[in-house]
Design a protein around this nucleic acid. Structure first.
Length: 195
DNA sequence: TTCCCGATTGTA
DNA sequence: ACAATCGGGAAC
């Protein structure tokens, strides 16, 4: 098994358009009440202040404040009244940026994930932003927590080889749908199906 | 305070 | 194709 280490000091300070592809191949690990669960990030989307599809487009609000507190925090919000979505904040403080984590390759705690999701097919555990939150047990109590020292952390692969990344338009957004801001590990079978 | 609609998912 | 379900944010 490969080694995963805390990222470089300035890793999360990169613009979301750089951090989004940079997060591919990183490990997302959660200390949940039921046990340790983790997965490799295989699909991300970048959201910035100048983007009409971004929650930060109209400035700081009660919901999006983590996007304005600098990189390396969790930004978790409820979508459609049902599902949680997990973001990694990015960039310098005040800039309003985040990276949506859209899919993982499940690595540790698959039994617990299956229990949380109510399905056993490994490809159905984390292949979508709402699915991976349910699988790992991510909810809004994590909102604003540090991803360096909190219950949920991002770790970078020890070997620095750059993964093969594909770029395309984002999923499920109306405005800004022309922006090429969705990043995937090329040919990964673990990405979200819907597109 | 009302009203519209969303960075989704599972089912018909 | 469509409902579920809740809260953010704009408008009144």
């Amino acid at each position: 098994m490969e080694d995963y280490l805390p990222p470089e000091e300035d890793f999360f300070q990169a613009p979301a358009t750089e951090l989004a592809p940079g997060l591919l191949g990183c490990l997302l690990r959660m200390e949940s009440p039921g046990g340790l669960v983790s997965g490799i990030i295989v699909e991300t989307e970048a959201y910035t202040r100048d983007d009409p599809a971004s929650h930060s487009f109209r400035g700081r609000t009660r919901r999006n404040w983590p996007m304005f507190r600098g990189g390396g925090l969790a930004y978790v919000y409820l979508i459609y009244g049902i599902h949680n979505c997990f973001n990694v904040t990015s960039g310098p403080s005040g800039t309003g940026q985040a990276v949506l984590i859209r899919a993982l390759r499940p690595l540790e705690g698959l039994g617990l994930m299956a229990e949380n999701r109510g399905v056993s097919d490994p490809e159905e555990l984390c292949s979508g932003p709402g699915k991976l939150c349910q699988a790992l047990g991510i909810d809004r109590s994590l909102n604003g927590e540090s991803l360096r020292e909190g219950r949920i952390r991002v770790l970078a692969p020890g070997s620095g080889r750059r993964p093969d990344v594909s770029v395309g338009p984002r999923i499920g957004v109306r405005s800004g749908c022309d922006m090429m801001r969705r990043f995937c590990l090329r040919n990964s079978p673990w990405i979200s199906r819907r597109g």
